[in-house]
Design a protein around this nucleic acid. Structure first.
Lengths: 374, 374
DNA sequence: GTGAAAGCGCTAACAG
DNA sequence: CTGTTAGCGCTTTCAC
C-alpha cells in the first residue's frame, strides 16, 4: 500500500534550468580542421586508398613493409575510418536489432546483458527496441524495416504475435526468434524446452510431497504459446505421477508480472481448498504470489511452496529466495547472436534451424525452506 | 542461501541443435529486384531527385501538385530512403549513445525506458553502452568516438569517472552528463538536487521520532561524488534538527546494490547500539538492508525503519513496500534528450547548462508501516 | 519552387 | 600484392 506523499512531506523542486554561461575563456575560433580521410592516409603513406583500406580492415595479403608505412601514417594523422561512409559503401550498418517486449523486465534485461557483449565482440552494435507486446508494433517491425533505423538483422522475442503471424515477415530480413518454436516456421528459433522445464518444476513440487499444485500464468489464446507449453508440462508432471489435474487450479493471467501473481494468489488463497504449492510461469509472478502469501500471515514454503521460472536476480535476493527454472541465458544469447551473424553473412540464404538450449532446476528457500549452513 | 542443484534434480539438456531443413517448397530464385532509389522515384514522377528529397524530408516549399505526384510515385514503387546513404550525405547517424554503468540496475533501466521513446519521437535512435563502471572504459568512450560506432551525441552517466575526469573528453562530442554537477564543467548536467533530497529523506525519519539513523552507501573517495552529496544531506538534516551525527553510523559501501545493503545492515545490527532507522543511498541497498533485518527476526519499520532512493519498481512491490526518494525520471530523460539534440543541432556550440529536475519523497511501509485501507 | 551536378568517404570489382 | 576507378544513394550548394 503506497502512501501518496502529502503536501507537507513532499519536496518537489520546480523544474528549474539555471544556465551558468561558462564564459569559456579560450573562445578562440579553432581552424576547424577536417577529419583526415583514407585518401589523406594513402597520400602520406605513398600508397593507394585500396591498400589503406586493406590495412584498416585487417586483410592478410599486405606486405609487412607496406603495412608498417600505412600504420605510421594512420598514427600520424590520427585517422579513424568514417563509419557512415563505410556503411554506405559496404551496404551494411554493422548493427543488429534486438526486439523485446519490455526492457525493464529482469529476464529480458539480463538476456540483453548477455547479447550485447557477444554481438560487440563480433563487431556488431545492438539496437534495442521495446514493443510493450503491442501486436501492431511487432508486426510492423518484422514486416518492413522501419524508416530511420539501420540494422542488418533482428533477434526478436515476440509477445503480442503468434508464431503463425511471423510468416508475414519481410523475407529479406535475417531473423532469429527467441522462444521455442511451436508451429512451423522458416527462420531460426532459440530457446529452452519449455514443456520439459515446466514438467521438472512441477515434478520437484510433487517430490516434496505436494498434491494440490496450482499453476499461475496460463494464457489459453493464440498468442499464449509460451504459457501453454508450461501448462502442458504441468499436466505431464501430474500424469506421470498419476495425479489428477484440477483445472480450477490453473490460473490465467494476462501478463507475467508481480501484480498478476499477487492477484492470482489472492484468489487461490480465498478458496476453501487452497493449494499447498504453486508453479508460477515467471519469477515475477512467483514474487507477487509470495508477497500475497506472506501478507496473509502464511509462510513460504511451510504453508505454500512456490517455484518460478527465469532465474532473475530479484529471486536470488528475495526473502525467501525463489526456487526456479534457470534457462542458460548466456547460451541463448550466444546461440542467437552467432546464428544471426551467420545468417547475415550468408546473405540470409539459410534454412530455418531450431536451437534448444539447456536449463537447470534451482531449488531455493521458496520450496525447500531455509538451508542451515554447515 | 541457494541450494546448488544436485544431480538428481537437475535437468539439463545438452546444447542440441536440431536442424530441420525446411525444404522450402517454393525455392524459386526470385529475380532479386533492387530497392528503388530516390532517382527512380524522381524519374517516375517526372521531377528531379532534389524535389523528391524535399518531399521525403517534409520541406514546406513544394507545390501541392508536385508533392502529390512524388507521393504517388513513392507509393507505387514502395520507396524507402536508404538511411546509410542519407547518413553519409548528411554527416549524421541519427543515433545518440546512452552510456550507463549497468543495464540491469532498475534505476537505469527505468531511466532508459523514458529516454528511448523521447529520442525516438525526435527521430533519433538510442545506442546503449554499459560500462560496468570501469573507469578506463568510461574514459575511452568520451575521449574519442570508438571505431565502429556511429552516434551524434552522448548522454553519459559516469560511475568510475569523477567529474574532473570529464574534462579529458573529446571537445567535439555533444555531451550531456547525468547526475548533479559537483565541480565546474563545460558541458550540460541533468539531475536532481541530491543534497536536498537526502536531507528530506532523513528529515522524514527524524519526524517519525528516530534519533539514531544510519546511512548506508557513503563513498568518501573522488569518484563517490553522488554518494557524498547524499551524506551531506544526511548531515544537514541532523544539524537542522540539532542532532549529533554519529560518524560510525555512516557506512561506506563499494556499490549501491542489494548485497552491499545486506552486509552493511548486518554490521549495524551486530552493534550493541543498532540504529532505529536507516537511510539507504539506493532502493537496492534498502532492499538488501530490509532482507537482513527480516532475516534476523526483526520487523520493518517497527524495529528498524528504512528509506531508500530512486523509486524503483521492486520497492513498490516488496514486502514491506519501500519508502523512497523518487526522482522525476521522465523529466530527467526528457531534459537530457532535448538538451542533447539542441546541442547537436547547434553544432555543439552551446555553453554548459545545469538542469535540476524535481523529486518527491514517497513514504511507504518501510518507514510508516502498513496502511489500513479505508 | 525546382533542376543540375558535385560530392560525402569508403568499398570492391577489375586490372596489372 | 597493389593501383585505378567506379559507384553506394542521398543531401545540398548553386543557379534558374
Amino acid at each position: 500500500m503506497q502512501v501518496v506523499c502529502s503536501a507537507a512531506i513532499v519536496s518537489a523542486n520546480i523544474f528549474s534550468t539555471t544556465s551558468r554561461d561558462d564564459p569559456s575563456p579560450a573562445d578562440t575560433e579553432v581552424p576547424e580542421l577536417p577529419e583526415p580521410t583514407l585518401k589523406d592516409v594513402a597520400a602520406l603513406a605513398g600508397v593507394s586508398p585500396r591498400t589503406v583500406s586493406n590495412v584498416v580492415n585487417g586483410y592478410v595479403h599486405v606486405a609487412a613493409a607496406t603495412r608498417a608505412k600505412v600504420e605510421a601514417a594512420i598514427q600520424e594523422l590520427d585517422y579513424r575510418p568514417n563509419i557512415l561512409a563505410r556503411n554506405l559503401a559496404s551496404g551494411r550498418s554493422g548493427q543488429i536489432a534486438v526486439v523485446i517486449p519490455y526492457l525493464d523486465t529482469p529476464y529480458f534485461s539480463e538476456l540483453l546483458q548477455a547479447i550485447i557483449p557477444r554481438a560487440r565482440h563480433r563487431g556488431f552494435n545492438v539496437l534495442i527496441d521495446q514493443t510493450d507486446g503491442d501486436p501492431a508494433h511487432e508486426a510492423e517491425l518484422i514486416r518492413r524495416r522501419p524508416r530511420g533505423f539501420a540494422y542488418d538483422g533482428m533477434i526478436f522475442s515476440p509477445l503480442g504475435l503468434a508464431q503463425a503471424d511471423l510468416s508475414q515477415r519481410d523475407p529479406d530480413l535475417p531473423l532469429v526468434v527467441l522462444g521455442e518454436r511451436s508451429s512451423d516456421g522458416e527462420f531460426d528459433h532459440v530457446g529452452i524446452d519449455d514443456v520439459a522445464a515446466a514438467r521438472d518444476a512441477v515434478d520437484h513440487l510433487i517430490s516434496l510431497g505436494h498434491r494440490r499444485i496450482a499453476a499461475i500464468g496460463d494464457q489459453p489464446y493464440r498468442t499464449g504459446e509460451a504459457a501453454q507449453r508450461r501448462t502442458a508440462g504441468y499436466r505431464q508432471a501430474h500424469e506421470h505421477a498419476g495425479l489428477p489435474v484440477d483445472d480450477s487450479l490453473v490460473i490465467v493471467t494476462p501478463r507475467f508480472n508481480r501484480v498478476d501473481g499477487a492477484e492470482a494468489m489472492g484468489h487461490l488463497l480465498d478458496r476453501e481448498d487452497p493449494p499447498t504449492a504453486v508453479f508460477a510461469y515467471s519469477d515475477l509472478v512467483a514474487l507477487g504470489a509470495i508477497r500475497t502469501i506472506l501478507q496473509r500471515g502464511l509462510r513460504v514454503p511451510e504453508d505454500v511452496a512456490v517455484i518460478g521460472y527465469d532465474d532473475i536476480e530479484d529471486g536470488r535476493y528475495n526473502t525467501p529466495t525463489v526456487s526456479t527454472i534457470a534457462p542458460d541465458k548466456a547460451g541463448i544469447a550466444a546461440a542467437a547472436v552467432d546464428r544471426l551473424l551467420e545468417r547475415i553473412d550468408s546473405g540470409n540464404d539459410l534454412p530455418g534451424k531450431e536451437i534448444v538450449c539447456p536449463y537447470r532446476l534451482v531449488p531455493r528457500e521458496s520450496t525447500v525452506g531455509p538451508v542451515t549452513p554447515d
